[in-house]
């Protein structure tokens, strides 16, 4: 029984991590008033870049860095179009998703060729934390994961601290709630928004790297498979707060992990209904089991400096 729970929770954390990583970044974008539908495309870019980086430089960390860098570039396009040109954020996000799919599919073929087995590359292997990993239940769940899971868990409190306890965080939130007021007190709205979008780019890239190098060790076309959208849901469900996003990601991860195990136990429920579980859970979550989730007031609106 203990094994069962341990395995379930370990699977939950593995599945939740890419959603969490992307969600942490998206919290920053959202708090500054940017709705980033393009996280999916940025993650996909990150997923390919990570594999390429690891393939070229022989190190998973190099892969992760390249992933963050590539997604950062994409997020700059997003930032430029939505902040400077004031284009509709949803539309640009959609374009980023299409672009991500097209670019990664094309370049994966240019770099790795068609119909060859994926090359052996360095990936993130589970690292057992000494002593702690021996604790029953918690040990295997929390302390026998790969480095990126630890990174994600460590970043949550830091991201929370920066957002709610520092000057920078205050500026970000001010820009998202009332850009005009923020502007009058001397905050550079554009700069704050650019910065926030870049943060979401960096983390989306890292989340993509986690999918291709943390969960797996190769790239396949469209492998992010909707996790970017789930991350967006996690942000809202988590009330635009990194700690909340952690809870939300773990809930979605639990839905997935449950679905896997139900199918493996040979239940009679058609598997399609099990596949729906995480999405239904998301909707139920958004409907306010945890109270209303209030979006920043200037969410989705371009700012025009008078």
């Amino acid at each position: 029984m203990l094994d069962l729970i341990t395995n379930f929770l370990a699977s939950d954390f593995r599945t939740a991590t890419p959603i969490l990583l992307a969600a942490i970044g998206l919290v920053y974008g959202q708090r500054a008033g940017i709705v980033n539908i393009g996280a999916e495309g940025m993650m996909l870019t990150g997923a390919l870049a990570a594999v390429v980086g690891s393939f070229w430089f022989g190190s998973a960390w190099a892969g992760a860095l390249l992933a963050m860098f590539s997604a950062l570039l994409i997020s700059l396009i997003f930032a430029y179009l939505t902040i400077s040109v004031r284009a509709d954020q949803v539309v640009v996000g959609t374009a980023i998703n299409i672009l991500g799919l097209g670019l990664t599919t094309s370049f994966a073929r240019v770099i790795f060729g068609v119909n060859t087995a994926p090359p052996k590359i360095d990936a993130f292997e589970p690292i057992a934390v000494p002593v702690l990993s021996k604790i029953p239940l918690i040990g295997p769940v929390l302390f026998q994961q790969n480095a990126l899971v630890y990174v994600a868990l460590i970043v949550v409190p830091i991201a929370y601290f920066i957002l709610f306890k520092t000057d920078i965080g205050l500026k970000i939130r001010a820009v998202g709630e009332h850009p005009k007021a923020a502007d009058t007190v001397g905050i550079n709205v554009y700069r704050v928004r650019y910065g926030s979008v870049m943060v979401s780019g960096l983390f989306s890239g890292l989340a993509g790297a986690y999918v291709s190098l943390g969960l797996l060790s190769f790239f396949t076309e469209n492998m992010v498979a909707g996790r970017g959208f789930i991350a967006l849901a996690a942000v809202i469900f988590g009330k635009y707060n990194p700690v909340g996003a952690l809870g939300a990601s773990l809930l979605f991860g639990a839905g997935e992990a449950l679905q896997y195990r139900l199918q493996a136990s040979g239940t009679d429920i058609p598997f399609q209904f099990l596949l729906m579980v995480p999405y239904i859970l998301t909707i139920l979550a958004l409907c306010g089991f945890v109270g209303k989730s209030q979006a920043p007031a200037a969410s989705g609106q371009p700012y025009v400096k008078e």
Binding site: S11, M223, A257, Q263
Partner: peptide, 23 residues
């Protein structure tokens, strides 16, 4: 024991489902 992942793209999901079977 047999499972369907429901697509041919989500390799991470296919991996986790295999893990569930192995468990």
């Amino acid at each position: 024991l047999t499972v369907f992942t429901g697509d041919f793209e989500d390799a991470a999901k296919a991996k986790e489902m295999a893990v569930a079977l192995i468990e």
